[in-house]
Computed example of a mutant assay.
Amino acid sequence: MRKVKWTGVYPAVTTKFKENGDLDIPAFLKNIECQIEAGVNGIIIGGSLGESSTLTHDDRIRLLEATLETFGEQTDVILNIAEGATRTAIELAQKAEKAGAHGFMLLPPMMYKPTDQEVADYFKAVAKSTDLPILLYNNPVDYKIEITLPIFEQLAEMDNIQAVKESTRDISNVTRLKNRFGDRFKILCGVDTLAMEELLMGADGWIAGLVCAFPKETVAIYELVRAGRIEEALKIYRWFLPILELDINPQLVQNIKLAEVMTGIGTEPVRAPRHILVGDERERVIKILEDGLAARPELPDYKNL
């Protein structure tokens, strides 16, 4: 079994579709190839940015199997689980484990506001159903459920719950987790516009969105911070920030897919009910991207720091 390190850059990749809404596996794999060439440490399939709400279990397994077949020896391949029922979450986890997944990203129960104990019990039940490592997704801003420190206290007994995607928008939560649990849980920043700040506060990695269009710049920032070359990282990060802000937007999927098209490593079709960007909003996003591309920084040899 592959050991997932939960450190470095993990793109939450977009799901590529044909114009009719069917999966576009070749386009999906082309983008992942660019991510791996840039030096990412893992791939997360079927997350929010991957249009999770429109994917069936069969879709997820097809994407998982295609990624494993092509890149499974080169990088961590992580499948997102976002379900409304404990039973269906366990079914997907077991199906994906059988297909060869290396680990899971696991959201709290969807479409119901559970109590803290219900959240803890849900996570425990899924963790007990699989031998694979699990990254929890803590995003109370978008999903209205916070994985609190007392919940983490209960989950610390589960050996395969190993990491958290920290998306509370509160940088100090990195310190709270470190103070309470030390290195028990790996912490990966899940908000592009706070990534360098959280890395400097001790986060172990970055689950990134705009990496889908700008993989080299994203990995360069992470590697430069890790090497202590903060000023160089900061220069890239400041250039990147107006683009990274496209990630904290209800249309983040459309924004990032448009960015992938403009950098030549993606396609734009989305699955209904989403529409691609149009009108003034499309022009606003294109202007941000054109300005960024015109000033794209020269990167150091970040793979050999």
Rank of each mutant, 00 (worst) to 15 (best):
R169W: 11
D170E: 13
I171E: 10
I171V: 15
I171L: 12
N173F: 14
N173T: 09
V174L: 00
T175W: 08
R176Q: 14
K178W: 04
R180F: 00
F181A: 01
F181P: 00
G182Q: 08
G182R: 09
G182P: 04
D183E: 13
F185P: 00
F185E: 01
K186V: 00
I187W: 02
C189S: 13
G190W: 06
V191W: 07
T193N: 13
T193R: 00
L194M: 06
L194S: 01
M196L: 15
E198T: 08
E198Q: 15
E198S: 07
E198P: 02
G202K: 09
D204Y: 12
G205D: 01
G205A: 08
W206S: 03
G209P: 04
A213I: 02
A213C: 09
P215C: 06
P215T: 02
K216M: 01
K216A: 04
V219E: 05
A220W: 07
E223H: 13
L224A: 10
L224H: 08
L224W: 12
A227R: 09
R229F: 00
I230H: 08
I230K: 15
A233I: 06
I236P: 05
R238W: 01
F240K: 05
F240I: 06
L241T: 07
P242W: 04
P242V: 04
D247I: 13
D247V: 14
D247K: 10
N249F: 03
P250Y: 10
P250T: 07
Q254N: 11
K257S: 13
K257W: 13
L258W: 11
L258V: 12
A259F: 13
E260T: 15
E260V: 09
V261Q: 08
V261G: 10
G264H: 07
G264I: 03
I265N: 10
I265F: 07
T267D: 07
V270W: 08
R271V: 01
A272M: 13
P273L: 10
P273K: 08
R274V: 03
H275R: 15
H275C: 08
